[in-house]
Design a protein around this nucleic acid. Sequence first.
DNA 1: TTCCAGGGGTAGA
DNA 2: TCTACCCATGGA
Length: 311
Amino acid sequence: MTAPTIREPVPVPDDFDFGATVHSHGWMRLAPFAWDRDRNALERPLRVPGGETVVSLSQPEGRGRPVVARIVAGRGSRGGLDGPGWRVVESAARRMLRLDADLEPFHARCREVGPPFERASELGFGRLLRAPTPFEDLVKILATTNTSWSGTTSMVARLVELAGGSHGAFPTPADVAALGADRVRERARWGYRSEPLVELAEAVASGRLDLERWETWDGSTGELEAEVRELRGFGPYAAAHVLALLGRHDRIGVDTAFRSFVAARHFPDAGERPSDRKMLEVYDAWDRWKGLAYWFELWHHHYGGGDAVTG
DNA sequence: TTCCAGGGGTAGA
DNA sequence: TCTACCCATGGA
């Protein structure tokens, strides 16, 4: 048992940029994430042994300096976390912020290609914010399909409200399974996604689907993609998104944002919108970095304004 | 009411 | 494997 603490540093890679990571895509806007503008901190509840805690993450000393995890509520608010509790928080931070990702190969490639990609390294681009668990990421990806971004945020918020923890922690697979498809449909308003969501939750809760296996997948992207596609409701777009959050970027999830952005940027003079195939060809030369290359272009286009890319 | 949204599923070529 | 077409469903 270590001494109680309410504030601990988490070591990070030299090129780690907290702001760029948090604003890498729309996840920071989905419950139970909350962005604290005043502190430039990312806040969210986490399940820890014996209950929940609310942690606030920031990088007060700037790029390459440690991320600081502050316990702001829940278990730990009055005395800190014990050793096991703290390890859960640190492990969650590492997954969310992708602290173990090696982006040097991507950044080296970006420097070769030149503008605007050469700025990817200095801007700290390349780590896509994730949930603490692969289950939460899958649920949120399902919530982006066939709907608008506002629909996604409300579906996720209602699910957390209905089945989440007392401090708002994201529901576990068992929680979602217990909620059942009917209530997911009628009260969380997930529409036709309700049954695929509950099926996913049941598969994970029962152990039939082991998502941890995907975290350390050493097979081909195609094999992993095939497993993801076996999940109901996960088509080509959703599967590519899942792969991206697992650190594989040799697929691009084609959605309305991809089509409109790539058409405008790379085919400005085309009379009619080019085919998906034509638009995907733009990124062929990036091999295993296709997805990040596209996302950097989109992100770079928006990030000047300081907002996350949410469509 | 109509139209759209960070698509999925399926049939047929 | 690619295309065409239908379908879903809340919100603007």
